[in-house]
Design a protein around this nucleic acid. Sequence first.
DNA 1: GAGGTATATCGTAATATTACAATATAAAAC
DNA 2: GTTTTATATTGTAATATTACGATATACCTC
Lengths: 109, 109
Amino acid sequence: MGLTKTEIFTDKQNQLATFLKAMAHPARIAILQRILISNTCICGDLVGELGLAQATISQHLKELKNAGIIQGTIEGVSVCYCINPKTWKLLETQLGAFLAEYKGETACC
Amino acid sequence: MGLTKTEIFTDKQNQLATFLKAMAHPARIAILQRILISNTCICGDLVGELGLAQATISQHLKELKNAGIIQGTIEGVSVCYCINPKTWKLLETQLGAFLAEYKGETACC
DNA sequence: GAGGTATATCGTAATATTACAATATAAAAC
DNA sequence: GTTTTATATTGTAATATTACGATATACCTC
């Protein structure tokens, strides 16, 4: 075992889970916030700012990139990472729809 | 290693990561949707509806409960699980604030 | 209280994640 | 072309997650 049974869930459920999983780490939230605030990002800055090793940050960036949340373009010696606007909007839509399913407090519990 | 370095991040970053992690599984999204739609929930229903073993579903419910997202009250033989309104609002606020940090497309990448 | 029903917990196997040192790659500067 | 600088990849150890069978618990019904 140890393998998520994706086949029994809908594509939407699986996709939302993938997005959430990609963001479900404080380092990746910190990285995203850093990109969001400065509206641009160079990986080297993060190595100094977060207290994690360069290899670890590179790994986190890779996961955000795999999920499609960020994109990177080579800029001379360094790489410029920024938000993928298309994915971010999709994420906002899907997450918004999910959260909106809550209809207020129930009488039950 | 293999242990997240929570101490180098802010409480807000860690809390948001914890919420996201709790929801970052298609089974748990399906469970939440089921609770949200019916405005109530009994675990036994889920065992029939999702294609997972009873022990697995109980485990997923436990994780959602540990994160404070759902709460359960014993109701005779079964347990009634429902959304924790306070946590759900906190989650909406924190996630909303996070998503709102995006200021639209950048010129950079 | 014996039997049935609903949920939780335990034990365990397979797999995934997190973190980092070491090393590789690739472009700029000299 | 060698050195410097920035990032990626590889290898590896520690830990976490996912799933399920088996078993325990707890409450209702008779």
